[in-house]
Design a binder for these strands. Structure first.
Length: 358
RNA sequence: GUGUCCGUAGUUCAAUGGUAGAACGUCACCUUGUGGAGGUGAUCACGAGGGUUCGAUUCCCUUCGGACACC
């Protein structure tokens, strides 16, 4: 039994559950939009909530660099700071160090890198990441991992990153325990450990076992959707599906294409986050019925009076915004276009999740 | 009315006696633990007519259009 997570088996590996966090319950499967800097780009908290998503992400890396966790804490913590009452999950910063920053040096202690905004030297480690996330006021935290790309250079480092991720997980867990030891069970945040191992089934199975052997609250699958093919990612999800122990939620990091979302949920994944619905929205691409994509900037929509997706119940489609209007707003670079399309895309993924909730 | 200069892509500009490039725009595509970022590909032009020449966007003439100066 897990006091924080209960679930029903739906069919095959698919399951539908309820995760209890100190900020409220989370129905799963759950898609969680990324609110990197404390806000889902271009959306108010109310607009985010209108999509029905149960959790919003925030980012350790970004909030640490600007405005800093002390500032967030002094403004009442992440919920009050961002005016968001939904449960908030913070990423560890591990992925951003790898994807955004110029890494100066990866050592056993941590990662030395340059702040991409101003070049300042900065340093993150498992302990520091835990401290930042707790200080931000996160409801669900992620252990600081060592991520590699799945291009040729990255694959050469898979084994090393795998080893280090587990050593860092032990340190994350120890620091987390130290920081939360005086908290009651219902007032402490939850901690997810990260599985790595690239595209090696042997390493993945080993990594999963090591993470599951530790008293983490949830299992995060990292290091996918980082440059490998769709088939490679799906094969790995297929491989992992029968290997999870049942009682903890499984969080697939960084996946948000509708096809991948379905594939993952049908392989036992409970939670996912991704920038795709919002980033794509800001660039004019929207999902419509059948997991198809339309480019709202296309000339063919200039005089199209229909909503993005006639069958959609999102506030954008229901309010009567036409494809023609949205195309115009995109062409003249009005942020409103990205806002309205983000609401639609997030709702699209949420509806997929709801299909599986029993 | 006279003189000078100028007409090249949708726009602003290049280059050249051997059929023309850029930027921006336009059109299409890519984006998976967010850089409101970035990238890829494509489309589009020598104002019109005549002459010289093997060959003219380039030189000459006419014409149309524009700018400036003079009157």
């Amino acid at each position: 039994m897990n006091p924080y997570f209960s679930f029903n088996n739906v069919s095959g590996f698919t399951r539908s559950g309820l995760l209890l966090t100190r900020a409220g319950g989370v129905r799963t499967p759950a898609f969680m939009p990324d609110g990197t800097r404390g806000a889902v780009k271009s959306l108010t908290p109310e607009q985010v909530q209108s999509t029905g998503v149960p959790v919003v992400l925030a980012n350790t890396f970004h909030l640490h660099l600007e405005p800093g966790e002390d500032t967030v804490a002094s403004l009442g913590g992440i919920h009050r700071f961002s005016n968001q009452s939904l449960p908030i999950l913070t990423d560890s910063g591990g992925f951003q160090v790898f994807s955004l920053a110029k890494i100066r040096k990866i050592s056993e202690e941590g990662v030395l890198f340059n702040n991409p905004a101003n070049g300042d030297e900065a340093f993150l480690s498992p302990e520091i990441s835990m401290q930042i996330q707790l200080k931000l006021g996160s409801d669900m935290m992620v252990a600081f991992d060592d991520v590699t790309a799945l291009d040729d250079a990255g694959r050469a480092r898979t084994q090393e990153a795998f080893e280090r991720t587990h050593r860092w997980l032990a340190r994350s867990l120890a620091e987390f325990a130290r920081l939360t030891k005086s908290m009651q069970p219902d007032e402490r945040p939850l901690l997810f450990g990260v599985v790595q191992g690239g595209l090696s089934k042997k390493l993945r199975a080993d990594s999963l076992k090591r993470v599951q052997d530790l008293p983490v609250d949830g299992i995060a699958i990292g290091g996918l959707s980082v440059g490998e093919s769709r088939k490679e990612m799906h094969d790995m999800l297929d491989f992992l599906a029968p290997l999870y122990e049942p009682n903890r939620p499984r969080f697939l990091l960084g996946v948000g294409d509708p096809r991948d979302l379905r594939h993952a949920i049908e392989r036992g994944i409970d939670m996912l986050d991704c920038v795709l619905p919002t980033r794509n929205a800001r660039h004019g691409t929207a999902w419509i019925k059948g997991d198809k994509v339309i480019h709202l900037t296309n000339a063919q929509f200039a005089k199209d009076p229909s909503p993005i997706d006639p069958g959609c119940d999102c506030t954008t489609c229901q309010s009567g915004y036409s494809r023609g209007f949205l195309r115009h707003q995109f062409k003249v670079s009005e942020p409103l276009a990205g806002t309205l399309t983000s609401i639609h895309n997030i709702r699209y993924l949420q509806r997929i999740c709801e299909e599986y909730q029993k």
